[in-house]
């Protein structure tokens, strides 16, 4: 009887204890300390992100359009882009912001064509304000998306132009006040490939952007592809000796410059991607507004490598990520353990 009481009470005490254990949450600091708390964790850095937009999908998603042949043999690529401006998105864990979107995401879809193709964009404005699509590149004045504003609630416009010049270009809304339309997220990437193509590579898009969530004309968050710190806790997996090609576009507003530093490596850089000859071999480029280019590199050694803005303020507000380089020939040696 006594032992039964002791047993039962032990179970009660033990379960109460384990419940108390469960209530404790923990998180890791910059310097690797594990901190326990009885409350909530405020941690955009290391917590698994539950945000709606997945930067890992966006990273390698290229849209080639609905393809058909014109009578003269030209390839026609048709895209449908819908603008909206009423979406509230969790742009960092726990922080909600009214994003204005092309096809529902920031950045909008990456549009890709080959030099000389005919690009036709069926643009529908389902927003509450006027919007347009303004492409950087060569096209007739009426296709410039500046003076031909497209009205709200279903306004339509068809942009049509020959893809060119070769390179990586931004597109964005060009309705005044311009800054407002851009910083809310109405931008995306437009890639024109050379006819002969580029060497095969693991290709990625990185739009360097930021969000001014308190409207004080200073960014509160920075990122590669919208979500701060995303690629830091979800490293981008690549392989040793494989050519990596990054189409990088700087869409950060308010701050005059941004930059891109790669760890443990250097890259060939092709400004605007218009030349097939790299202009420089470096680990650091500086980008002004809508300045963009193509980076090419390969890793010799497996392991974890940071990439981030060397304007460290930006990296401490989210513009930082990790390449996890795996050696496919040495399966036993995982990248994570290497060099630690």
């Amino acid at each position: 009887m006594l032992s039964a009481i002791i047993g039962v009470s032990t179970i009660i005490v033990f379960s109460a204890f384990s419940e108390a254990q469960l209530e404790q949450k923990s998180f890791v600091t910059h310097s690797g300390q594990v901190i326990q708390t009885s409350g909530d964790v405020l941690d955009p850095l290391y917590a698994a992100s539950t945000v709606e937009f997945d930067p890992m999908d966006y990273l390698r998603e290229f849209n080639y359009g609905r393809i058909s042949q014109l009578p003269d043999g030209t390839t026609l690529r048709e895209f449908t882009i819908i603008a909206e401006d009423d979406k509230i998105q969790e742009i960092s864990p726990g922080v909600f912001y009214n994003v204005w979107t092309f096809n529902g995401t920031v950045p909008g879809p990456t549009i890709r064509a080959i030099e000389g193709d005919l690009v036709r964009i069926h643009f529908i404005n389902n927003g509450s304000k006027s919007h347009t699509m303004h492409f950087h590149g060569i096209h007739p004045a009426v296709m410039d998306g500046v003076f031909e504003t497209v009205g709200p609630d279903g306004g339509r416009f068809t942009y049509e132009f020959e893809a060119g010049p070769v390179g990586v270009h931004p597109y964005h809304c060009h309705v005044m006040p311009l800054e407002e339309h851009i910083v809310h997220g109405l931008y995306g990437v437009y890639i024109v490939d050379p006819k002969e193509g580029r060497p095969p590579a693991d290709e990625m898009i990185m739009v360097l952007n930021g969000f001014d969530t308190d409207f004080d004309t200073e960014n509160n968050f920075y990122a590669a592809n919208t979500i701060p710190f995303y690629y830091q806790h979800h490293p981008i997996q690549i392989k040793t000796n494989e050519l990596i090609r990054i189409y990088v576009v700087n869409m950060v507003e308010f701050d005059p410059i941004n930059n891109f530093h790669l760890h443990g490596n250097l890259y060939n850089y092709y400004p605007t991607g218009t030349s097939i000859v790299p202009s420089t071999y470096t680990d650091m480029i500086t980008l002004s507004q809508t300045e963009r280019g193509i980076m090419e590199f390969q890793y010799k050694y497996p392991g974890k490598y940071l990439f981030h803005a060397h304007k460290v303020e930006f990296s401490e507000k989210g513009w930082v990520g990790i390449f996890l380089v795996d050696n496919p020939d040495q399966k036993s040696q995982t990248g994570i353990d290497y060099g630690n």
Partner: peptide
């Protein structure tokens, strides 16, 4: 709801006790 803490305008991981939801005049 408290979402984030920073020191010198640089985002830091942090904890909030008892929890991140604050009613009027509640402290944490």
């Amino acid at each position: 709801k408290i979402a984030m803490a920073d020191v010198n305008d640089r985002i830091q991981p942090a904890a909030i006790e008892p929890d991140k939801s604050l009613e009027r005049f509640e402290t944490a």
